[in-house]
């Protein structure tokens, strides 16, 4: 398995806050990586740096060997790194289906077309299939704004997934989903993701969810990686037990 993403000594401080502090990590192709860590430990910042939203003040990030530092989010997305957001980012006044159709038109680089309809038969077919994979079966002609929080989260993930990325970064895909539904949502989501060759990274606060779905767990603390390994290894680590599990659970 080759390395798809490599971060080397990445630094980003916000004033006195060390959101990313000399962080280094390598992600392998096809891995499912869970990121855990207390609030404010820099998990979202890491995703923001990788996707070009936040510029690091130091360090290097390479995607398939090439530096992506300084590239705009759009360029990085086109290279094959897509993401979902802690607060879902959707086209709320459009329908669930239309959200997906837009993603598909962009993926096939047809977003500038102004003559053929967005609702082509082929695109409609693929959109409903993808949406069904994520559990959206009926009601896809409703506006995205009418979805409950959990549904919005999942649609956000589905849109990022539909772009067929090499790396998919998911920022707390199950926050806002009720405790009862968490595993169902993750089953749906991870079922689709593991079926593909995507390297998936998800940030998650629920340790049971992490233990169940992640091949590898990164524990963040104060902008750096405190522990890295399988969930069993990581959760047995004394530093993690006191720093993260003690506070986080």
């Amino acid at each position: 398995m080759g390395v798809v993403l490599e971060a080397v000594n990445v630094v980003r401080h916000f004033g006195a806050v060390k959101a990313c502090d000399d962080l280094s990590v390598q992600l392998q192709e096809g891995q499912t990586v869970g990121i855990v860590g207390p609030n404010g430990s820099g998990k979202t910042t890491f995703v923001n740096i990788v996707t070009g939203y936040v510029k690091p003040t130091g360090g290097q990030i390479r995607f398939k060997g090439d530096s992506i530092i300084g590239l705009e989010p759009r360029k990085i997305a086109n290279l094959g790194i897509t993401r979902s957001f802690q607060v879902p980012q959707l086209y709320t006044s459009l329908t669930i289906l239309e959200n997906m159709l837009i993603a598909l038109s962009i993926r096939s680089k047809q977003q500038w077309g102004f003559w053929r309809p967005l609702r082509s038969a082929a695109r409609l077919e693929e959109a409903s299939r993808l949406l069904a994979d994520f559990g959206f079966t009926d009601g896809i002609d409703h506006k995205a704004s009418t979805l409950p929080e959990g549904g919005r989260k999942l649609l956000d993930v589905a849109l990022s997934f539909a772009l067929q990325p090499t790396i998919l970064l998911l920022d707390e895909p199950t926050s806002g989903v009720s405790v009862d539904d968490k595993f169902a949502v993750m089953d749906t989501l991870m079922g689709v993701v593991k079926h593909s060759a995507i390297t998936a990274v998800f940030i998650e606060h629920d340790m049971d969810v992490v233990a169940r779905y992640a091949d590898r767990v990164l524990v963040f603390s104060e902008g750096t990686i405190l522990a890295d390994g399988t969930s069993a290894e990581v959760f047995a680590n004394p530093a993690v037990r006191t720093h993260v599990l003690g506070e986080g659970v």
Binding site: A77, T92, S93, E98, I102, S105, R107, Q111, F114
Partner: peptide, 30 residues
């Protein structure tokens, strides 16, 4: 035709959420 095309919908998407458009890999400015 334009209104129902990908570009027409992208404009509505921009109206809703420019961040989403950019993170999907499309240029809002274009």
């Amino acid at each position: 035709r334009v209104v129902n095309s990908p570009l027409g919908f992208l404009m509505r998407g921009i109206n809703d959420n420019e961040i989403r458009v950019e993170y999907m890999g499309a240029s809002v400015r274009r």
